[in-house]
Design a binder for these strands. Structure first.
Length: 798
RNA sequence: GGCCGGAUGGCGGAAUUGGUAGACGCGCGGGACUCAAAAUCCCGUAUGGGCAACCAUGUGAGGGUUCGAUUCCCUCUCUGGCCACCA
């Protein structure tokens, strides 16, 4: 017999909704803010991987509620972005419409899983009532001088026709579409995240993130401490580029081994621009390097290239003349764009020196402080982290709320005029020129200057989709507020997020951006905590059954709708938790899912049998149950959902194994537990399989929702075992077992084996309980006995 | 090249962090029920030997520490992820 999942899941979902039992209260109680990364509602619908994170935190949220906490577990939509825009262009529709449809699909799919989200707080980044505040926050950056416009080379995706942040370029390819990128000069809005580099780094010590997440953030920020040292360049002095070339090094102690300098092509270009008479070879090399795609340039495997500039510098340590080369292995946007090359100590410099026949010399190492004393130089700190390119030349994003006035340059749109609404138009294709599509909409562009009232033009770039996701956790706290992004008292009540779970792919970008964003708001006095997330966990991917990534093109995508309709939400929820360790990638298995469904059927059958049984209040089997429920509880806390599920399975394996009925010895019945233990089982099961748990709850005659019950406390008397089985080893090899109290003494353990009894022949013990142990003791002398109560008895013999 | 992780039956994975390796699930083999099938239930299932009791081997490879090692140390192989010419 199999329960009717379609019927019961619909029934309980409707009841939960009607009773509003998952709505968070903005005051009172011990709060627990539990956050999942809100999904991007793509046209493909929910991915089977989404429920992994959502179900795990759903278990956590449900447990916390039953533990009496006031839980906020919200959901929303990160809906701006390229895939939707591209899809809309392809199908000749509007992104607005497509987004509405996609959200509806996602919402239906998520609701079918019985997740305990507080749907009354749903947010949508593309809603003007939401992005009004995204724009407002951008203006706070602008007013604080942290948003600035800069002409600089950006990564341009040839296929998406969009400027990308450094973080969005992967091996020279666009992170979104995998297409080629090239460098282009473009005026971009930038946000000075690097001003927060130190705090983003240091404050990692104050939060509870998985260690690997902290390490990744640290590496991404890439702080390195070194020294800037000036090398005199007599020729440059003549040609007007300044007479000193500054280099950055973390190994100032090796300066005596610096046999040449290398400048980046970018720096060479600057020299040329200010009048340096470079040779044609140099000019050609520089031009070629700068046009080269990022991928070629930053490939470490590639053989080094470079040319001699013919310019000489003086090593301040020993006054020797050394040549300056230009080579593209030196990056223009890190350090000073120039290095001192020490082939003796640096692998890259050595490779370069070997290739071009430059001298490699052994040298004395001199402590950094002495070097600085001798040659000058300034201790400095450099970061790999770059400022955040905040402009996108696309339609489907938040308009940047600034106005250009000839008189007053960039002027912020006044708060009262926010939001600057994205115009609803038919034509919004990106342009090859790199201009935002909004630039061609006259009614949008032409406006008046908020300062002087004169004619002015709006900024036409839009924000990256990291913008809306950088602060959504704040909006959940007060989603309908139209006077502020959230009420300060409510923020104080809920912040920080107590538990944030998401994918590893967001460890460097989203996590860093949103920490930065929150820190800035904190500095401005708008949020109560410096760090937004007290604790961060991550989950592994759900792979296809062959162990590869699921992808449409490979046709190995699992559709959650089909799973829910055929096997039920509870089976999906429990299977996805059961399939493997939460943080590891795990392949999908339909058979595994079917196994979980069988387990749920077994649960329902047991409860049905239990209900019809005349003996209900016997507690004789309760102690069987307690350790399993205890394990479920501790496993949830440790994010070990897979073993929590197997604990339930083990429990029901025991509960459905038939035993002799003591009152009626001819009859075999399962070990039916007491009323109160039955309830505890269902309460513990509820976070995992809420529909089944509630259905069983009703079946046994209880009223209301399981969710309204307190989380079970298991009395110690039920958890303490009277007798345990431990292994008996002879010289480290297990030869048998004995049963004894977990705190029995060594003397008692030995007495069980009757070791005092003389041994004549091994055969004398055949048939006795411990004959095998005796057999291995025969003829040997006991050297040592190791006894660990409740664990092991090891008799070492000679 | 850097950082972080892995490697355990036919498969996904357990193992109280040094204490009976293989829990739980899948798959497979056998049986019960059935006219039959499905569903369900029971038994078995690391490998080799043995009817069995048991014995030997066994957690990527090789060493080491220990009464005892999947767990700790050293050397090596393979492998996943992220970053990558960052001075």
């Amino acid at each position: 017999m199999s329960y009717n999942h379609q019927h019961i899941e619909k029934k309980w979902q409707q009841r939960w909704e009607a009773a509003k039992i998952f709505q968070a209260k903005d005051s009172g109680g011990k709060k627990f803010y539990c956050l999942i990364e809100f999904p991007y509602p793509s046209g493909a619908g929910l991915h089977i991987g989404h429920p992994r994170s959502y179900t795990a935190l759903d278990v956590m949220a449900r447990k916390r509620r039953m533990q009496g906490m006031n839980v906020l577990y919200p959901i929303g939509w990160d809906a701006f972005g390229l895939p939707t825009e591209n899809y809309a262009i392809k199908t000749g529709r509007k992104p607005q419409e497509v987004t509405i449809e996609n959200i509806a699909t996602f919402k239906r799919q998520l609701q079918s899983l019985g997740l305990s989200f507080d749907w009354s707080r749903e947010v949508n980044t593309t809603d003007s009532a939401y992005y009004k505040w995204t724009q407002w926050m951008f203006l706070q950056f602008f007013k604080a001088g942290l948003a600035y416009k800069a002409k600089q080379p950006i990564n341009w995706c040839l296929s998406c026709k969009i400027g990308l942040a450094n973080e969005e370029v992967v091996n020279g390819k666009c992170e979104r579409c995998g297409g080629d990128t090239e460098k282009r000069e473009k005026e971009q809005w930038m946000i000075a995240i690097t001003k927060y580099a130190d705090r983003l780094l240091e404050d990692l010590d104050t939060v509870d993130y998985l260690e690997k997440i902290k390490t990744q953030q640290r590496n991404w920020i890439g702080k390195s401490e070194g020294v800037e040292i000036g090398f005199e360049v007599p020729l440059l002095a003549k040609e007007g580029s300044g007479e000193v070339l500054k280099i950055f090094t973390t190994r100032a102690d090796t300066i005596f081994g610096a046999t040449f300098l290398v400048i980046s092509p970018e720096l060479a270009k600057k020299w040329i621009d200010v009048g340096w008479h470079a040779s044609d070879t140099v000019r050609n090399y520089v031009q070629e390097s700068l046009g080269r795609a990022e991928m070629d340039r930053t490939n470490a495997e590639r053989e080094k290239t470079g040319v001699d500039t013919g310019v000489l510098a003086i090593n301040p340590a020993n006054q020797k003349e050394i040549p300056i080369w230009v080579a593209d292995y030196v990056l223009g946007n890190y350090g000073t764009g120039a290095i001192m090359a020490v082939p003796q100590h640096d692998e890259r410099d050595r490779a370069f020196a070997m290739k071009f026949g430059l001298p490699i010399v052994d040298e004395p190492l001199v402590p950094v402080d002495e070097v600085i004393k001798k040659v000058g130089g300034k201790k400095t700190v450099k970061y790999k982290l770059r400022d955040w390119v905040f402009s996108r030349q696309r339609y489907w994003g938040e308009p940047i709320p600034l106005v250009w006035c000839e008189e007053h340059t960039w002027v912020a749109v006044p708060d009262a005029q926010l939001p600057v609404v994205l115009p609803d138009v038919d034509k919004y294709e990106p342009t090859d020129s790199g201009e935002s599509p909004l630039a061609s909409i006259g009614s949008f562009v032409n406006t008046t200057c908020p300062t002087c009232g004169g004619p002015a033009k709006r900024e036409t770039d839009t924000m990256p989709n990291w913008a809306g996701s950088s602060w959504y956790f704040l909006r959940y706290i007060d989603p309908k507020n139209d006077r502020a992004f959230a009420d300060p008292d409510k923020l104080k009540h809920w912040m920080p997020v107590d538990l944030y779970n998401g994918g590893n792919e967001h460890t460097t970008l989203h996590l860093l951006y949103s920490r930065f964003w929150n820190k800035f708001l904190f500095d401005q006095g708008h949020v109560p905590t410096s760090e937004p997330y007290a604790r961060r966990h991550s989950h592994g991917l759900v792979l296809a059954s062959d162990g590869t990534k699921m992808s449409k093109s490979k046709g190995n995508v699992v559709n959650p709708d089909e799973i829910v309709s055929e096997y039920g939400a509870d089976a999906l929820r429990m299977y996805i938790l059961f399939m493997g360790p939460f943080e590891e990638p795990v392949p999908w298995s339909l058979n595994g899912l079917i196994g979980v469904r069988r387990f749920l059927d077994r649960v329902v059958r047991y409860v049905e049998g239990w209900k019809e049984q005349y003996v209900k209040h016997s507690e004789e089997h309760d102690e069987l149950v307690a350790p399993y429920l205890e394990k479920v509880s501790t496993d949830i806390e440790a994010f070990k959902f897979n073993t929590a599920v197997s604990s339930f399975m083990s429990l029901f394996k025991e509960l459905t194994a038939e035993v002799v009925d003591r009152q009626n010895p001819e009859v075999f019945i399962p070990p039916y537990v007491s009323d109160s233990m039955m309830k505890k089982i269902l309460i513990s099961l509820c976070p995992f399989a809420p529909h089944v748990a509630n259905e069983c709850w009703e079946m046994i005659g209880e009223k209301g929702f399981v969710e309204e019950q307190p989380w079970p406390e298991l009395s110690r008397s039920l958890l303490v075992r009277e007798s345990v089985e431990i292994g008996v080893q002879i010289s480290g090899k297990t030869r048998g077992t004995i049963h004894l109290s977990p705190n029995a003494t060594q003397q008692e353990a030995i007495e069980i084996l009757n070791l005092g009894r003389p041994i004549n022949t091994p055969t004398a013990h055949i048939g006795t309980e411990h004959s095998n142990i005796w057999k291995h003791l025969d003829g040997k002398t006991i050297v040592k006995i190791i006894y660990v109560p409740g664990r092991i008895l090891n008799i070492v013999v000679k």
